[in-house]
């Protein structure tokens, strides 16, 4: 059964499948993403959670569970395999007549450490198979948050983390450029649907989840999810930061459906990164020039994003990293 698109939050209804009973930080972006993604998927869903904040902070010392659908932990690097194993079990049991025929969503909700680093090979393997309604969501809080904010391969250039602190000799903090995980996933020919998303615009994530589940094959969505603890900002600004990430072009929203690329949001007039970055404590050590140089990188990238959109084809938005002065 196809999941219909949603126009307003009201249409989503009042039932939550990720609800109270967790202990994430106030304003936790990944938790908001979890709530929206599970609402979009509905009750016929199995959730799988690699280790990370969305495992540890969703557990609770009083043994309550925030999940109203079946949920099972998988190891930090096990997300890809867990999804495949679950989907394979349903297909085997159904095709052998051991279980009633029904469409079941399998949704793996893992962090950037889990999917972009330690579990990257497993995710890649999983996306070479043809299981339907198998959706991998990478909630990208741009660090190993649960272990106390360490840099991952999706941590942006310039961010200070506990493994990439800014110091007297190393001024910049993280000197690696953020890996574009979703683009590498698009290189898997078996994947029907790949998208990036954010907590803004409001129904963007919900509809992408529904499209992904309808797509007829395995699918992948990378959501940028602000993390007040790791990005150092007031919890009330989670959605504001999501909006600024999208409007400044720091985070491009796109989807790739059976070989066709399109931007799902084009910033009308791209604002500079300054407001977005200055709201986050992890960038306070950067100078105005650093931010300007990063701005120019983003500017270059956007030319390529727009060209990709025009051609409906992926062009890798490669740019040289901003070398520190």
């Amino acid at each position: 059964m196809s999941l219909q698109p949603i126009r307003t939050p009201k249409e989503l209804g009042s039932i939550d499948y990720y609800t109270s009973g967790h202990r994430t930080c106030a304003g936790c972006g990944p938790a908001i993403g979890y709530r929206l993604a599970t609402k979009a998927a509905g009750p016929k869903t199995v959730l799988l959670g690699p280790t990370g904040c969305m495992y540890v902070a969703n557990g609770h010392q009083f043994l309550t569970s925030p999940y109203a659908v079946p949920w099972f932990h998988t190891q930090l690097g096990g997300g890809g395999a867990a999804g495949i194993g679950t989907a394979a079990a349903f297909r085997a049991l159904i095709s052998k007549g051991k279980r009633k025929r029904e469409e079941i969503n399998v949704l793996v909700y893992g962090g950037d450490g889990g999917f972009a680093d330690i579990g990257y090979a497993g995710l890649s393997m999983a996306l070479t198979y043809d299981y339907q309604r198998l959706l991998y969501i990478l909630y990208d809080n741009e660090s190993y948050a649960n272990t106390g904010i360490q840099a991952s391969s999706t941590t942006p250039w310039g961010a200070t983390t506990t493994f990439t602190p800014t110091g007297k000799v190393k001024r910049i903090g993280n000197e690696r450029m953020k890996k574009n995980v979703a683009l590498t996933i698009a290189a898997h020919p078996g994947v029907r649907y790949v998208a990036t998303s954010a907590l803004y615009p409001p129904m963007d994530l919900v509809n992408k989840v529904r499209k992904a589940l309808n797509s007829g094959g395995p699918a992948f969505i990378q959501i940028l999810t602000p993390c007040p603890k790791g990005w150092f900002f007031d919890p009330k600004h989670t959605i504001t930061l999501s909006r600024l990430a999208v409007e400044t072009g720091a985070w491009a929203l796109w989807e790739y459906e059976e070989g066709t690329f399109s931007l799902t949001y084009k910033p009308p007039k791209r604002q500079g990164l300054r407001e977005y970055m200055r709201m986050q404590g992890r960038f306070t050590h950067l100078s105005d020039e650093d931010i300007e140089r990063l701005d120019r990188v983003i500017e270059e990238q956007w030319k390529l994003w727009l060209e990709s959109d025009r051609q409906r084809r992926i062009i890798l938005p490669w740019t040289p990293p901003p070398t520190p002065l």
Binding site: A82, I84, G85, T86, A88, S124
Partner: peptide
Amino acid sequence: SAEIIVADSEHSQFEIAKHASAVGA
């Protein structure tokens, strides 16, 4: 008849089996 998955590693192999078993396979 069975679903046979060629995994990317032994870690994935055993995770696949574990999760399939949890469903009832």
